[in-house]
């Protein structure tokens, strides 16, 4: 590269300044929420963020919805019908699901439900889609109320959402089962039965609410795992979200994009953790915040 060009680049990004100066400048910019611009494309990181975050949020919302519905119901069912066939099957499935790396699972699902049916020429309604967020040019139009897929969109969403939450769902199911089993034997459950309440009421009102506390903790802690999984899942399915953007920025060595997006992700993660901590008090009145003693 011509020396003059190197000089221009150094000038533009302030790369000639001493490191401490660069560091202070970085923070001056960052505090004003100026995250710099991509070395590769020159786009501002804020623009990239605005563009990609919504797709990650959509994917994340569905992953968490599936995690809560599938994880908790499988866990509760396993606990109530302990040692039944379904309980055993779900125990094995959760163990396996937590051992398969998300990117391997992603490709397996992609092959089984999108690539293979396509190769075999199965009827169109049996094929799921991958590799693009929507039919070309569809843009935002195909999302109803921001996150509800319409038309073709769900076929693109389903596989990445399942992949993204696989590990979390497995953990949530295992946790719900364990904590439900503990609660089912508690004294207050016997009291409820003695009062003659019907079983459904006992399980949902008395059992589930008390069993949910560790599960809520898990879902909160797990948010970090979900973010990590998002980097991989989005890369596997070419989902244009923050995760795949970070991954490609890493292979392009596009430092401002890596730094900026990581910073945002960490901020969001910290806020979620705070909310989870606060929500304990709501789920468990015995927890009083700001009590001093640990």
């Amino acid at each position: 590269m011509a020396a003059i060009r190197v000089e221009q680049v150094n000038e533009r990004y302030g790369l000639d300044d001493p490191l401490p100066v660069q560091f202070v400048n970085y923070w001056k910019r960052t505090i004003q929420w100026d995250l710099g611009e991509s070395y590769l494309t020159g786009r501002s990181v804020n623009d990239i963020l605005k563009d990609k975050a919504k797709n990650s949020i959509r994917l994340g919302i569905w992953a968490i919805i599936i995690e809560i519905i599938v994880g908790i119901s499988v866990g509760v069912y396993s606990a109530i019908r302990r040692y039944s066939l379904i309980d055993k099957a779900s125990t094995v499935t959760t163990a396996v699901a937590s051992a398969i790396p998300v990117f391997v699972l992603g490709y397996i699902l992609q092959y089984a439900f999108a690539v293979y049916p396509n190769k075999q020429g199965w009827p169109d309604w049996m094929r799921l889609r991958t590799s693009n967020i929507g039919p070309p040019g569809s843009g935002d139009g195909t999302w109803f109320l921001f996150f509800i897929p319409t038309g073709e969109q769900w076929r693109y969403l389903l596989l990445p959402a399942i992949t993204l939450d696989s590990v979390s769902t497995a953990l949530a199911a295992r946790m719900t089962r364990g904590s439900m089993l503990e609660v089912l034997n508690a004294d207050f459950m016997r009291t409820a039965r003695a009062k003659g309440l019907d079983e459904r009421h006992i399980v949902t009102r008395h059992g589930l609410r008390n069993a949910m506390l560790p599960v809520v903790t898990l879902i909160g802690i797990d948010f970090g795992t979900t973010i990590g999984a998002a980097v991989l899942t989005e890369t596997v399915f070419s989902w244009p979200g923050l995760g795949s953007t970070i991954a490609s920025a890493v292979s392009d060595r596009d430092l401002p994009v890596i730094l900026g997006l990581t910073l945002v992700v960490v901020l969001v993660y910290s806020i979620v953790n705070l909310l989870v901590d606060v929500s304990y008090a709501w789920f468990d009145p015995r927890v009083r915040l700001g009590g001093g003693a640990k």
Partner: peptide
């Protein structure tokens, strides 16, 4: 406070 994979990456 930093998601593990993101930190490692």
């Amino acid at each position: 406070a930093i998601p593990y994979i993101v930190l490692a990456v």
